[in-house]
Design a protein around this nucleic acid. Structure first.
Lengths: 145, 145
DNA sequence: AAATAAGTGAAAATGATTGTCAGTTCCATT
DNA sequence: AATGGAACTGACAATCATTTTCACTTATTT
């Protein structure tokens, strides 16, 4: 069994939360999925394999997976939460195409350092940050011209 | 009459949208208010002075004011839209206290430049960005200790 | 003044998310 | 193995911010 599932089981154990069949199946689907799916999309995938699992259960399972630190909820400002892998992932920010919705994960050490300095200047203890760059991607810039 | 109201009237005129008494009053409230209020808060302020104005009208008026470029909707990820002044304002980002909700507006020219470079590297035509730094502010860091 | 277009506000609709609750499953203790 | 209690599940209802609808009013044009 993968290291992430072991980690999840340990997290649940530590918090006296049971490891149910549903949670196992939803975690499997999450681990296999491409990045940045919404609850509705995850539910669809889950339901293909396990039709008896309910929408609410997917919500609850994904919230647990987030609390365990395996997934992260991301918000591109369109009112829909999406989830991405977090376990063992480097922190990163997003470049988002306003035309086709494509996104690129980016990280810039210089920016990260400047953010830390900026927080320090304002006497903030920095816990995290979000940065999203909006624009049109390479392909869409061509199309629009 | 202020330059912003003139600008707004001109915007409405250009778009064949009428300048109603309600829109005038809601703009007044918005222009006088402190930054970053939600619709509910704006509605409260409006209702104090003009009890007959409805919630829906405030929504519609704020959306118009945004379209005109006078206000900007901001989203701190808590599901509530807030509005801040945009006309004649410099672009800025936010430092947000996770404990008390206080925020500080910040701008860092170096970060802005690095963002432009980052977009360029990925062949994105940059249209805008959002950056939020989360942490605990000076006062709250004290309290928590 | 009539006709037409836009605006208003109350209420209903929407869509994402969370809460409720009766029934089920799991686990520890007899 | 039986039991009692706690956690879990899933269908549905509730919530909350926002948008749409619609009957009615107001403003503008002819």
């Amino acid at each position: 069994m993968g290291v992430i599932k072991e980690f999840y089981k340990q997290y649940l154990l530590n918090n006296k939360i049971r490891y149910s069949a549903q949670r196992d199946k939803i975690l499997d689907v999450f681990l296999k999925m491409e990045r940045h799916l919404s609850i509705a999309q995850i539910y669809e995938l889950v339901r293909n394999k396990y039709p008896q699992i309910g929408y609410t259960t997917v919500y609850r399972a994904m919230n647990l997976i987030c609390k365990a630190g395996i997934a992260e909820k991301i918000d591109f400002g369109d009112g829909i939460s999406r989830f991405e892998h977090k376990y063992g992932q480097e922190h990163h920010d997003h470049l988002i195409c306003l035309n086709c919705g494509k996104f690129i994960e980016v990280i810039d050490a210089q920016i990260e350092e400047l953010q830390r300095q900026l927080a320090k200047t304002h006497k903030f203890v920095l816990k995290g940050h979000k940065m999203q760059l909006f624009g049109t991607c390479c392909d869409c810039s061509k199309d629009i011209k």
